[in-house]
């Protein structure tokens, strides 16, 4: 980084801080009720663009309104997650934001939290247990839409083989289960579509790459790869690219639309990307947080729901403005 860049970054930061401070001043006048409220976010792991994006937006708003905001990082450790969630309940915050790794893991604790008066907001991945609110993507819809697109591109009349390789993260993860269910439901009506591989990549790009390159080997006429998450699908896309089949095989992926992943569409590693825009989800979550703190409550047995709008990014409509950046 040059000195000039550094100085301007510093200047920018100072200006931003000043603006935020000004904003905080006026906002505090507007809504003193939220001051001193407490929100705890328990993510599956920090350090991925999704959670970082959400957390940034929530923290921003929390600071603005004088809400105490904390993060308890489970770092991909499910046992730690339930432990941290239990501790969070003991801390008696006003809201716990839950990021469910499986539909069952936190169910009891969400119930317990709600019973003790803590509002639970589930983010992106839902539990079987209903709580006050849910903000996130509709996995069913994503799975269905991608499957329908695959049918359109590879199915009858396309002249393609109809062979599809699915590369889920883990077969048991909530989003993978929902998307696969929806996709197979669609494929059921289209016997020409053949799922030739459905091997979990453990969310790792390298594993996805190896699986995909082997599948390509066996099925050189593969029509589409459906990667459940943008991050590991990069590996799958690279396998396609390295095999020189970039123009023959469609690579589908989903994700939060962070620039790092998004850029891969421009490079042709990923062809079609269903983005639920994590940055937007972050704002939704922050808004929901404030709405709940102001006393909003769902009807008995229901949840306040905000389903994230989806943007389908393809090579054709790609523009940098469709992706978002994490400020460094």
């Amino acid at each position: 980084m040059t000195l000039l860049k550094k100085t301007s970054a510093l200047l920018g930061a100072t200006v931003m801080t000043a603006l935020v401070a000004l904003g905080a001043g006026s906002a505090a006048h507007a809504d003193d009720r939220l001051k001193g409220k407490r929100v705890i976010f328990v993510p599956i792991a920090m350090g991925i663009s999704l959670t970082e994006g959400w957390s940034r937006r929530m923290a921003e708003q929390a600071e603005l309104f004088g809400i105490e905001y904390e993060v308890r990082d489970a770092a991909f450790d499910m046992k730690a997650m339930s432990e941290l969630f239990a501790s969070a309940i003991n801390d008696k915050p006003d809201i716990i934001v839950a990021h469910n790794p499986t539909v069952q893991l936190l169910a009891r604790q969400i119930k317990k939290a709600e019973e003790s008066g803590i509002k639970v907001m589930q983010i992106n991945l839902s539990s079987v247990q209903n709580s006050t609110a849910f903000v996130g993507a509709d996995w069913n819809r994503i799975g269905r839409e991608i499957a329908e697109d695959i049918v359109k591109q590879c199915g009858e009349g396309s002249g393609k083989s109809g062979k599809v390789a699915i590369v889920p993260g883990q077969l048991t993860a909530a989003d993978s289960v929902l998307m696969n269910d929806a996709a197979f439901e669609v494929f059921k009506g289209h016997p020409e579509i053949e799922v030739v591989s459905n091997q979990a990549s453990d969310w790792e790009p390298e594993k996805a790459r190896q699986i995909t390159s082997t599948v390509l080997q066996q099925h050189p006429d593969l029509c589409a790869v459906f990667g459940h998450w943008g991050v590991h699908t990069i590996g799958a896309g690279n396998a396609v690219k390295d095999a020189g089949k970039q123009d023959d095989v469609l690579v589908y992926a989903t994700g939060g639309g962070n620039r790092l992943i998004c850029d891969n569409i421009e490079q042709g590693v990923i062809d079609r990307y269903w983005s639920y825009n994590a940055d937007g989800q972050g704002r939704d979550a922050a808004t929901m947080m404030r709405v709940i703190l102001q006393g909003a409550a769902p009807k008995e047995g229901e949840m306040l729901r905000v389903d994230s709008p989806l943007i389908v990014i393809t090579e054709e409509n790609y523009s940098p403005s469709l992706c978002w950046d994490m400020p460094s």
Binding site: D202, W203, P205, E206, R209, V231, I234, G235, N238
Partner: peptide, 8 residues
């Protein structure tokens, strides 16, 4: 080859 370094 995979285009990414992944800590997992």
């Amino acid at each position: 080859s995979s285009g990414a370094v992944d800590f997992r």
